[in-house]
């Protein structure tokens, strides 16, 4: 299990490659579920030019650790990686990377989804968006569940 906050931009796919090299799961791992959240240039009908991600140092890491440990108790996992940005963020930057490895896809898929949803609701981060003429705090996250097309 590895959890890190990053104040500088990171490349999620390079991070995954490096993390995989450090692990020795070959043969045991049958599934990897990966979520990468990136910064959009729009939100709630406004163009967004940048963002500042505030966090609560100490509590953020503690909450992320608890979220990952809870997932490891609920599902059979081999490894969990969570990277999350803090500070100034540019459009297109990766904000969060979650990678869950397991022997079977069910555990990997479900745990990855659960970790993201728990992170969204409990990890103490706050987004402040820079719009064209002003700034605003994001007061709630978008739903993690898509509306199906009819």
């Amino acid at each position: 299990m590895r959890i890190e906050l990053r104040s500088q931009a990171f490349h999620p796919w390079s991070e995954l490659e490096g993390h995989e090299r450090r692990m020795s799961l070959s043969g045991r791992c049958g599934a990897a579920a990966i979520f990468v959240g990136t910064m959009r240039d729009f939100n709630e009908g406004e163009n967004v030019q940048g963002m500042f991600l505030e966090h609560y140092p100490g509590m953020t890491e503690t909450q992320l650790q608890q979220i990952c440990e809870s997932a490891a108790e609920r599902w059979t996992l081999l490894d969990t990686l969570v990277l999350h940005r803090v500070g100034e963020i540019s459009v297109g930057d990766a904000i969060v990377l979650v990678c869950v490895r397991a022997a079977h896809r069910g555990d990997a898929f479900d745990a990855c989804r659960a970790i993201m949803e728990e992170l969204k609701h409990h990890a103490p981060f706050w987004k402040k968006e820079t719009l064209v003429a002003t700034e605003r705090w994001v007061e709630k996250n978008t739903s993690g569940y898509a509306v199906k097309k009819s």
């Binding site: 959240g37 991600l53 966090h55 993201m116 969204k120 705090w137 007061e139 709630k140 996250n141």
Partner: peptide
């Protein structure tokens, strides 16, 4: 750790107040 407003605190505790979170 998240707590409700009606719980007692102790000497040297750190209490934090903040709005709904919005990470990820």
């Amino acid at each position: 750790d998240y707590e409700k407003n009606d719980i007692p605190v102790s000497d040297n505790d750190e209490v934090a107040f903040f709005p709904m979170v919005s990470g990820g």
